[in-house]
């Protein structure tokens, strides 16, 4: 299915991550950190999924931070979109 990951920089400098408009995570202004397992959870991959990453910064604050995390998720989304399930096959066949 098509999934849109949207990163929204709030006026409060908190960074919200939505997937198909559902808020999945919040990176707060004091700790600009995200773990790999949280990203895995946000993506919630299932076979057939395809991702698009968007960003929004209406207040124009901390744009560099938004670009950093958008870049990070875009990199991941591109690689996940490139996964050919047929190629994965099985480990023991």
């Amino acid at each position: 299915m098509e999934k849109t990951i949207k990163l929204v920089m709030c006026e409060t400098k908190a960074l919200k991550i939505f997937v198909n408009d559902e808020e999945k995570y919040l990176i707060d202004a004091q700790n600009r950190n995200i773990s790999a397992d949280k990203i895995y959870e946000i993506i919630g991959f299932a076979i057939g999924d395809h991702y698009t990453v968007l960003s929004e910064n209406e207040s124009g604050v901390d744009n560099q931070v938004l670009e950093f995390f958008t870049g990070l998720l875009t990199d991941i989304a591109e690689k996940v979109n490139a996964i050919d399930v047929g190629d994965i096959g099985s480990t023991t066949a």
Binding site: I43, I83, I88
Partner: peptide, 20 residues
């Protein structure tokens, strides 16, 4: 490494193990 680990985990999660 963060990017790779997420992608690898996703790949692993959908990888089918063919039991004999």
């Amino acid at each position: 490494q963060v990017i790779d680990s997420v992608v690898t985990a996703i790949k692993a999660s959908v990888e089918e193990i063919a039991w004999p």
